[in-house]
Computed example of a mutant assay.
Amino acid sequence: MSYDESQPAPRRRFGLNPLTLTVATLVPAAVVGVLVWQGLGGSGDDGGNAAAATASASPTGRSGTLLGDGVPGDAEPGGSGPASPGATDPAKGPLAGKVVVIDPGHNTRNHLHTAEINKQVQIGPTSKECDTTGTATNAGYAEAAFTLDVSHRLRDLLKKEGATVTLTQDDDRPFGPCVDERARIGNRAKADAVVSVHADGSAVGNRGFHVILPGLVKGGGADTTPIVGPSRDLGEHIAGRFAAVTGSAPSNYIGDGTGLDVRKDLGGLNLSTVPKVFVECGNMRDPKDAALLTSADWRQKAARGLAEGISGFLAP
């Protein structure tokens, strides 16, 4: 219950007992006043002041508490708690004013909509299927679940740095979106950077991460000329920080040890008008890489490596 301190405190109301009434009829008015005061134990003003003190001590808003991880919490849902000591105001962070679009690869329900995701869409001079189901570890951990988890972690890190962050999908649609729509989402947002999060499904023994960069593609509504250079810059920043933070080596089967690969057959890159890369964080079909990809601690490192690479590109 909230208290409005601008209103006067209510006076306490007391009833008169029979003894008081009897005395009042037998003694002068002055004596009556004394007896009534004694019978009631004090003046109404004291009670009113006590009520006012109670109202003053009561909160006029919700008070927050610091949770175990230092995040402000509230006694009631929706309340606003105090800022964590030393917390940085995102509006003043190094990425304030920057727009980042994160594209979690595939969709956890794509396998239920094979007809829809197999539909061909234009990706420039050629066409390709709308989307795919993605790969999985031998134990069944789906790439789509991995990409969404890392994307959530990455989003949170970037927002703390002040960036405006949009996801192309947040497990909030039955399938997709199709690869051409994923590109349009980044374009419409006028993103300063777009990162599509993936994991590979290659042979056992093939290990490590690689970053896919757009090649030069023209035709069919595609023209990557303006983004080839900036996208390579973004990819190099991400590759460097991803290796440093996760401890993972660049791919031993793609990119000749550079961790970089150029492709012209991915609609998400071909149709982009803003700097964009794909990141294959590891090989889900290799047991050693799979052990990393299924570790929550490692996924947090992966998200941090991506975030630091993006930040280095946007705020050098």
Rank of each mutant, 00 (worst) to 15 (best):
M1G: 14
D4A: 10
D4T: 00
E5Q: 15
S6I: 00
S6Q: 13
P8W: 10
A9N: 10
P10T: 04
L16R: 14
N17V: 10
T20P: 00
V23A: 14
T25N: 15
T25K: 15
V31C: 10
V34W: 11
L35V: 10
W37H: 15
W37L: 15
Q38C: 07
G39Q: 15
L40D: 08
L40H: 15
G42T: 07
S43I: 00
D45L: 12
D45C: 00
G47M: 09
G48P: 01
A50G: 11
A50W: 11
A51H: 13
A52S: 14
T54E: 13
S56A: 15
S58L: 14
P59D: 14
P59M: 09
T60N: 08
R62S: 13
R62T: 06
R62E: 12
A75G: 15
G78P: 11
S80M: 08
P82L: 09
P82N: 11
G86E: 02
A87T: 00
P90I: 07
P90L: 03
P94D: 13
L95E: 05
A96K: 07
V99L: 05
V99I: 07
P104R: 02
G105A: 13
H111L: 05
E116D: 13
V121L: 03
P125D: 02
T126K: 02
T133W: 02
T133L: 01
A136E: 10
A145V: 05
F146H: 15
T147G: 03
L148D: 06
V150A: 06
S151C: 09
R153Q: 13
R155T: 00
L158G: 01
E161P: 00
T164F: 09
L167G: 04
D170S: 14
D171L: 01
D172W: 02
R173Q: 14
F175N: 08
C178D: 03
V179G: 04
R182Y: 01
A189R: 06
A193T: 04
V195D: 06
S196M: 08
S196N: 13
A199P: 07
D200Q: 02
A203P: 04
V204T: 12
G205N: 07
G205C: 00
N206T: 03
R207S: 07
R207Q: 15
F209K: 00
V211Q: 11
I212K: 07
I212Y: 06
P214F: 04
D223H: 00
D223Q: 04
I227D: 02
P230M: 07
D233Y: 12
L234P: 09
L234F: 10
L234G: 06
A243H: 10
A244Q: 15
A244T: 06
S251M: 06
S251Y: 05
I254Y: 14
L260K: 07
D261F: 13
G267D: 01
L269Q: 08
L271S: 05
L271M: 07
S272P: 01
S272D: 03
T273Y: 05
P275K: 02
K276Y: 13
K276W: 11
V277T: 03
R285S: 08
D286F: 04
P287A: 03
D289I: 03
T294Q: 09
A296L: 10
W298L: 08
A302T: 03
R304G: 03
R304M: 11
A307W: 09
G309Q: 08
S311D: 12
S311L: 14
F313S: 02
L314S: 04
P316T: 01
